[in-house]
Amino acid sequence: MSAPTPKPTSPLGEMTGPGRFSLVGHALPWLVIAAFYFLVDDYLGLGTQVMIWVLFALSLDLALGYAGIVTLGHAAFYGLGAYAAGIFSIHVSQDPILGHFFAIGVTALFGLLSGALILHTTGVTFLMLTLVIVSIMFEIGNQARGLTGGDDGLQGIRLDPIFGVFDFDLWGHTAYIYTAVVLFIWFVIAWRLVHSPFGRSLDGIRQNARRMRAIGTPVWWRLLAIYTISAAMAGSAGALSAHATKFVGLSVLSLLTSGVVTVMLILGGTRRLYGAFIGAAIYYIVQEWTAQISPYFWEFVVGIMLIATVLFLDGGLMELGDRGARLLGGRRRAGGGE
């Protein structure tokens, strides 16, 4: 495991992340997202899905990557956000922004409460508790048919235009831009967060919680804070998915959803924020490509990718990129903190 040495942080908290992001590095993913909108008009729905998964993986990066909270329960937040947004639009108001904030509020509250209950445990016990929470949520989603539609999924979501102007069109233009904007906002929040003193303290907690406690860091509170923020973010991703597809399937609450988002994050690289972007995109490409060969082949490939990443590539694909860059341009100092 790499142990980043603390580096001086500029007031804006920029350019000091692992790998020393240049301006080009920052611009690239957003340019790709913008270019995709203009160039690949037919696949906007797919692009929206990828961005939603990026946001979901980003939320996991905060909890798992930075704070070291090893969880398999993030699908609970994603699914809760999706159902909250969907149910809100059916029963309360069709305003998408209001529904989105409602979903974020609900998942943040759920993250706070569940985190307060379970964050004092560690290791396998914690993992098990997160697993159990997802299982319970899945059962509730399955059995509260009146509210969630059970395994038929939640149907009949209708939305007003955003700000009363931008209607959710059939071709997904609005959904794409809306998702991109939400993703950008969350990204800026996450970037500022992890480069703040608070983010640094999470780094410390991940590396040695006992020592952090000894120097006076309120470890439990910090973990609870990041867990809540991460939950809100995952809930936001879920709300986007409900709004973009106007449908919520029961599978959003399944263990597999937790597994998939973890695979994306690990594949791309943890503790880099942009790792989520690469991981989600690559995952979708691989899934499309392998599913054509055999419907089960992708599961095999994902499994092999996971094993290989753990055994040979600790930092994910982003690390591979860094290594390549270091080989090409010797000028670039080892910024990954190795």
């Binding site: 993992l127 973890t262 499994g303 996971l306 094993i307 753990v310």
Partner: peptide
């Protein structure tokens, strides 16, 4: 967790 989940997939 990741590696053993990977094994399950395989």
């Amino acid at each position: 967790v990741l590696l053993t989940i990977g094994l399950v997939f395989v």
